[in-house]
Design a protein around this nucleic acid. Structure first.
Lengths: 224, 224
DNA sequence: GATGTCTGACTGTCGGACAATTCTAGACAG
DNA sequence: CTGTCTAGAATTGTCCGACAGTCAGACATC
């Protein structure tokens, strides 16, 4: 009866980390901004030790960097980082795509549903935030095809890093229709069992994404 | 003039984490053993806060687990974990293998050298610890072919997790000659540019590794 | 201009404190 | 004898105050 009842635990450290993370993703803290321990501790009404642990979490998540004796600062995404992250994405997602036939029905269904949701949303709303959310879910589902929780977690971290690095940039602009078509093609190829072709298409898609990301780092705006 | 002068930083937290890690890998701490904060802090002569941070590092590295209000304990590797880790290894390493032709000469050379060192060592020594070390270096170099530092770091974490889970088992036994032949074949295929065949061979090799690992979890001994 | 000194800010680490939670063992009722 | 309850011990989670070490900038000195 009460099958799905779950009381999730939440420590002060986690809540503090989440709070800071939210501020980062909302773009309220520019990359490079130092995260001072005492200031944060006073602002949030928690002890300094707690803030320190929260900052360690953020550093481990890759959204902040620690410089010894100087403190923690919001991560700045360099062009090298974008390249590294792109290569990581390609590796994880194409590994997933290539496992399409061995993947479980649930994993395949997740890809299908994410793609459906994306196209549906693209047709009905102009809310870019929700759209990128749906977009990311597709790519996440592709990694899910590998069947490894760890890789999925890694992909989440990498995506968070990318999103953070772009949070302060102007809103993503570009040809939504083309984006939708890209994913429709990719998933179509997969569901037709043409795995190798899908892998190639994915490669192309991610390479295109990389250049626009690189561009964004340089110019302050994303063009897709 | 002073080009290669470098002073590496080392915090107490890091040293503490390393110290505990060493104990784990040496098998001196069984999986499931609780890591008590006060006990460790007294034993190592550092503050409890410091130990707490060190434990957080170990948890982030996946070699220990934290249960809220109960503390941190040495990780126990389940069969599901072995499966997950194996899938992750396959994904990362075959992604590297498939990028062989696009990889930089240095990255390819790293694979070559690691393989050379391994075969050389296998012929001259019976030191299993050094041998697995050299073995791991090959697989690490394969991930290096992806050109992503992040994936390399992820692979390190996964390997650490596997090694830890097996630290308390009896020494790895098995057909060294066969192992050497496996890697010689794999690297040979790569250097001949037969990438797809190499990927298949890698798949086979890692699948074989997975069954012996699974077996090890069940029986307390590794047979290869 | 290079070097030394001072100072304020901040981190890294320590020790103590206390509430909340979990575990344990003994008391107790049926 | 078995199951339940409860008091107390052990341990974690969090906060606080303290102090040395390090860093960066201002300023003085040679």
């Amino acid at each position: 009866m009460y099958g799905d009842l779950q009381l999730e635990y939440s420590s002060t450290v986690e809540r503090a980390a989440d709070e800071i993370r939210r501020a980062l993703f909302a773009g309220r803290l520019e990359p490079g901004t130092p995260l001072r321990e005492v200031a944060l501790s006073e602002a949030m009404g928690v002890g300094r030790s707690t803030i320190r642990e929260a900052l360690a979490v953020l550093v481990a998540d890759g959204v902040a960097v620690r410089v010894p004796n100087k403190g923690v600062a919001v991560k700045e995404l360099s062009a090298a980082d974008v390249g590294d992250l792109s290569r990581a994405r390609v590796a994880l997602e194409s590994a997933g795509v290539r496992r399409w036939t061995e993947a479980t029905p649930e994993q395949r269904a997740a890809v299908h549903e994410a793609a459906e949701a994306y196209t549906g949303l693209a047709a009905t709303t102009g809310d870019t935030a929700a759209l990128t959310e749906a977009h990311l879910r597709i790519h996440r589902a592709l990694v899910g095809l590998t069947g490894s929780r760890r890789l999925l977690a890694a992909a989440d971290v990498y995506n968070a890093e990318l999103r953070l690095g772009l949070a302060h940039l102007d809103r993503v602009r570009g040809n939504i229709a083309e984006q939708v078509e890209d994913h429709r093609l990719l998933v179509g190829l997969l569901e037709a069992g043409r795995v190798e072709e899908a892998a190639v298409e994915l490669d192309r898609h991610l390479a295109a994404a990389e250049v626009s990301l690189r561009d964004a780092i340089g110019h302050g705006t994303i063009e897709r």
